[in-house]
C-alpha cells in the first residue's frame, strides 16, 4: 500500500465524532467519564458490550502518554475499525495461495505502518504483550463473541516477550504484530476464501476442473503450543487449542475438494505424531515415544472410524468432523503430560 493510501485509510472525521460524543455526554449525567466513552464506542458500533469496553479503556488509559486523553484512545479504536475495512478490501482483492502468505502480506503492507503510528500515543514502557493484546482488541470484528481483557492479556503475556539487552528494549514489533493479528487475519482469510470458493465450486463444476490436493498437514502451531506448555506449565487456553487444531486440519483439507478417510489417515497420523513429538522437550520425549503417540492417535481415529460409516466428504466437512476429536485428544494428552 502506498503512503498516500495509508494516510487516507487512517483519516477519521474527528469533528463529527466529537460532536456526537458531546451529545452522549450531555445525556448521561449519572455515568463516569470512562462509561460515557464506552457508551459512545458502543453507539459507534465498535462493540456491543459496554462492560467489556469499560474494562479495556480502564486498563489502557494509564498506558497512553500525558499529551493524550482517554477520548483519543477511543478515537484510535474507531480509526482501527476503519483501517480494518481498508485491509479487508485488500484481502478480498488478492489471490493468496495460503493463509500464511495472506498474514505476511497484510502485515507488511498495512499493519507495519499502523504499528509505527499507534506506538506514538503510548508510553515507552508499555510491554509488547500489551501491544499485541491491543491489536487483538482493536482489530477484532464487531461480531466476535467476546473480548474479555484478562483472557486476552493472559494469552499474550505467555506468547509475547518484551526483550531487553543492556537495559535497552530490543525491537521485536513484527513478532508482536503477528501474535496479535495472525488469528484475526486467518479468520478473515477463511471467511473470504469460503465466499470465493463458492464461486469457484460453481466454476469447477462447469469446467470439470480437478483441484490439486495438498500432501501434508502443517502442525507448527500444535508444536509451538506443546513447547510452551512443556516450558511454562501454564494452562493452555481453549481458544489456542482450537486454533492449533484448525490450522493443522485446514493446512491439508481444501474447501470444495472431496476426500476419503483412507487417503489421508496415514498422513494425518504421521504428521500429527511428528509435530507433537517435536514440541516435546527432552524429558518428555523419554516418556512419550513416537510409537506410543502413534498408537494413541490411531486408536482415537479407529473409534471414530468404527462409529461412523466410512464416507466421502468435502474438505470443510472433514475439518468440522475431525476438529472435536483431535481437540479432545490433544486436551487429554496435555492433561496427562505432567502426571
Amino acid at each position: 500500500m502506498e503512503k498516500k493510501n495509508f494516510e487516507h485509510a487512517l483519516k477519521i472525521d474527528k469533528k463529527r465524532l466529537l460532536s456526537y460524543y458531546e451529545r452522549i455526554k450531555s445525556q448521561s449525567n449519572s455515568l463516569t467519564p470512562v462509561e460515557i466513552i464506552a457508551e459512545f464506542l458502543v453507539n459507534q458500533s465498535i462493540r456491543n458490550s459496554t462492560l467489556e469496553v469499560v474494562e479495556i479503556i480502564n486498563y489502557y488509559k494509564s498506558k497512553i502518554i500525558n499529551e493524550k486523553q482517554v477520548l483519543d484512545l477511543a478515537f484510535e479504536w474507531i480509526r482501527a475499525h476503519q483501517f480494518r475495512s481498508e485491509y479487508k478490501k485488500h484481502l478480498i482483492k488478492e489471490q493468496y495461495t495460503d493463509y500464511h502468505t495472506a498474514i505476511d502480506d497484510c502485515i507488511s503492507l498495512f499493519f507495519l505502518e499502523y504499528d509505527e503510528y499507534i506506538r506514538n500515543i503510548f508510553k515507552k514502557d508499555m510491554k509488547e504483550f500489551e501491544f499485541s493484546a491491543l491489536y487483538e482488541i482493536f482489530f477484532s470484528p464487531f461480531d466476535k463473541d467476546s473480548l474479555w481483557l484478562n483472557e486476552i492479556l493472559e494469552k499474550n503475556k505467555v506468547n509475547v516477550p518484551t526483550i531487553f539487552y543492556n537495559n535497552k528494549k530490543i525491537n521485536t514489533n513484527l513478532f508482536t504484530i503477528r501474535s496479535g493479528l495472525s488469528e484475526i487475519i486467518q479468520n478473515d482469510y477463511n471467511e473470504v476464501a469460503v465466499s470465493k470458493s463458492k464461486n469457484l465450486t460453481r466454476t469447477m463444476r462447469q469446467k470439470n476442473f480437478i483441484h490439486p490436493k495438498k500432501t501434508i498437514f502443517d502442525g507448527t502451531m500444535i508444536e509451538r503450543l506443546i513447547k510452551f506448555y512443556c516450558f511454562n506449565k501454564n494452562k493452555i487456553q481453549k481458544r489456542e487449542l482450537e486454533m492449533s487444531i484448525e490450522q493443522f486440519l485446514s493446512s491439508y483439507f481444501q474447501i470444495g475438494v472431496i476426500y476419503r478417510f483412507e487417503e489421508f489417515e496415514e498422513t494425518l497420523i504421521k504428521n500429527l505424531v511428528d509435530h507433537i513429538y517435536s514440541g516435546l522437550t527432552e524429558e518428555f520425549k523419554n516418556i512419550k515415544t513416537i510409537e506410543t503417540l502413534k498408537s494413541d492417535i490411531f486408536s482415537t481415529l479407529s473409534q471414530y472410524k468404527s462409529s461412523n460409516k466410512i464416507k466421502k466428504l468435502d474438505g470443510s466437512a472433514w475439518i468440522k468432523d475431525l476438529k472435536n476429536i483431535l481437540e479432545h485428544f490433544l486436551n487429554e494428552f496435555l492433561k496427562t503430560l505432567f502426571n
Binding site: 505476511d104 502485515i107 507488511s108 516477550p161 526483550i163 530490543i170 525491537n171 521485536t172 513484527l174 513478532f175
Partner: peptide
C-alpha cells in the same frame, strides 16, 4: 521492512 527484520527479530525472540 518485513522479511529481513522478521529473521533478525524472530531469532532474538
Amino acid at each position: 521492512k518485513y522479511i529481513h527484520p522478521s529473521i533478525l527479530q524472530g531469532k532474538i525472540v
